[in-house]
Design a protein around this nucleic acid. Structure first.
Length: 480
RNA sequence: UCCUCCAUAGCUCAGUUGGUUAGAGCAUCUGACUGUUAAUCAGAGGGUCCUAAGUUCGAGUCUUAGUGGGGGAGCCA
């Protein structure tokens, strides 16, 4: 039978009309008021039961967590807290949820810590917080595709399984169909990968960038949006072993164009959720306000969640070269007072978390784009500047998140690229296809990688990356 | 991987220099009440004190190792 969704019913003006809604019981107060949620919105629909004329056996089965279908008449609510409610006429239990078992789970109607919710990740999407986070995640994903589609980008599905081990972005997960108990061996005792499924060693991708570059040099403007895998033993609130990354790559575009694109892109998707996800953002904003109340004054957020997002949309990101950043840091109070664990002395040092946080959270107090980094601390494919010591790299740093974007103008000159690879012992055979793009009609081109989960962290105000993806993969964790 | 803190009822936590029968609030169940919004009142049930080994007459408490988690760092998105 056709039924309506809670979001539609709550917005409906059809008073006295009949509706059927289906969802999960969030609470059942006073044997009379069901708070029903079906995931279509963070808001619950109040369904009022005429308990005096309802079978007591049925009433007993209306419990927190149960799936039910309610048919009744939409009426203006007599109580405060909701505009309309459904006067239930018939209630059908689709799936029971026994209270004695429910109380052992996070579905029990009380406040749970995020750590506890993470232990039952298959049930946490039924909570307000995770419903809001996951709806926002989905809307952000849609906004990303819409942004690129409106601007003539094509999505390139770069491979998940890669035969190239020169991507250089981190430790990789091996892919094999060999019998690990008894693998075929070469004469010297090493494993003979020629007998493996692909006839060579393969891994899960750590980046689609190099393949995306080949597509940009044909389709013009492309982007990838897919899963990425890194076998790093990272145990932090901002790293996952499996995460989603957006990687635009644009032909005939220099670093300035790349920075313009990244900034415009972030502002667009943040603005999209500001206008399309008000209810979920309001809930998450309030959640943060409540959380802040138990913190000392100094640690409380200076802006509400939506104010913070609006600030990002309305203000230009501060663009600073690495050299300028070093000067600022060298003359900063914490550096002079030796408050930094890693003091800034000379040009050339890699910036530590504490330095990035100082620039973003204390000095500029807004998103910052750092560019033109020393060549020796950045990847081989970044374009060397005329000074011979810096490359056209850029990182976007966000308050509370750190690096959200890393990108560069790519080295398009074959000879310079080959020199770089030789210096880093990257064999040319490994990347012959990549070098071909520089042989045949090479051109200026640029791109960046944006960590999707880090964007979701920023937009939702959550602080642990494990709480913005359904089933987080981290060292020692891949249960579901 | 490194530093640091933590693990006791379904949840949040208390548990004295190592000592008899392991405690509270909330949740759950039973009953009462019924236009509620974290409903209210009364009563009841509920424990492998993370795992393993050790010290001891005796370990929730002390030691070692492991597992998981929080915060910070590195690697990065």
């Amino acid at each position: 039978m056709k039924h309506s969704y809670v979001a539609e019913v709550l917005a409906s003006q059809d008073i006295h009309q009949e509706f059927t809604v289906k969802g999960w019981v969030r609470s059942f107060r006073a044997n009379q008021f069901i708070a029903l949620n079906d995931g279509s919105t963070i808001n619950n629909l109040q369904c009022v039961v005429d308990y005096e004329n309802t079978d007591p056996e049925l009433l007993k089965r209306i419990t927190v967590g149960a799936a039910i279908a309610v048919t009744g008449i939409l009426e203006e609510s007599q109580g405060k807290g909701q505009r309309v409610e459904i006067k239930a006429q018939t209630i059908v239990i689709e799936g029971d949820a026994h209270p004695e078992e429910v109380k052992l789970t996070i579905l029990s109607p009380k406040r749970h810590s995020l750590e506890k919710l993470r232990e039952q990740s298959h049930l946490r999407v039924r909570t307000n917080t995770f419903g809001a986070v996951m709806r926002l995640r989905s809307k952000l994903s849609f906004a990303i595709h819409q942004y690129f589609n409106e601007r003539g980008f094509y999505q390139a599905h770069t491979p998940i399984i890669t035969g190239s081990d020169a991507e250089g972005a981190g430790e990789m997960f091996k892919i094999t169909a060999l019998d690990l108990e008894n693998p075929p061996k070469n004469e010297d005792g090493s494993i003979n990968y020629k007998e493996d499924f692909f006839g060579k060693e393969t891994n899960l991708t750590v980046s689609g960038q190099l393949e995306a570059e080949t597509y940009a040099l044909g389709l013009g403007k492309v982007y990838t949006f897919g899963p990425t895998f890194r076998a790093e033993n990272s145990n932090t609130s901002r790293h996952l072993a499996e995460f989603w990354m957006i990687e635009p790559e644009v032909a005939f575009c220099d670093l300035d164009g790349n920075m313009d694109l990244a900034e415009d892109f972030i502002k667009y998707v943040v603005n999209y959720v500001l206008t399309h996800c008000q209810d979920d953002l309001a809930f998450l904003e309030n959640r943060l306000v409540q959380e802040d109340k138990s913190k000392p004054q100094a640690e409380r957020a200076s802006m509400l969640l939506r104010e913070k997002l609006q600030f990002v949309v309305d203000n230009n990101f501060k663009r600073v070269s690495y050299t300028e950043a070093i000067d600022i840091l060298r003359n900063s109070k914490p550096n002079k007072k030796k408050k930094f664990k890693f003091p800034i002395n000379a040009w050339g040092a890699d910036l530590q978390s504490e330095h990035e946080r100082f620039l973003v959270e204390k000095h500029f107090e807004c998103p910052v784009i750092l560019f033109d980094y020393p060549a020796n601390i950045k990847a081989f494919y970044m374009r060397l500047n005329e000074d011979g010591k810096t490359v056209r790299a850029m990182d976007i740093l966000f308050p509370g998140i750190g690096e959200i974007v890393g990108g560069s103008q790519r080295e398009e000159r074959l000879d310079v690229l080959k020199e770089k690879m030789a210096a880093l012992d990257i064999p040319e055979e490994e990347l012959h296809w990549y070098l071909d793009t520089r042989r045949f009609g090479t051109c200026t081109h640029s791109g960046f990688g944006l960590g999707f989960e880090r964007l979701v962290l920023f937009v939702t105000g959550m602080t642990n990356i494990r709480d913005v993806i359904p089933y987080p993969r981290t060292p020692g964790n891949a249960d579901i």
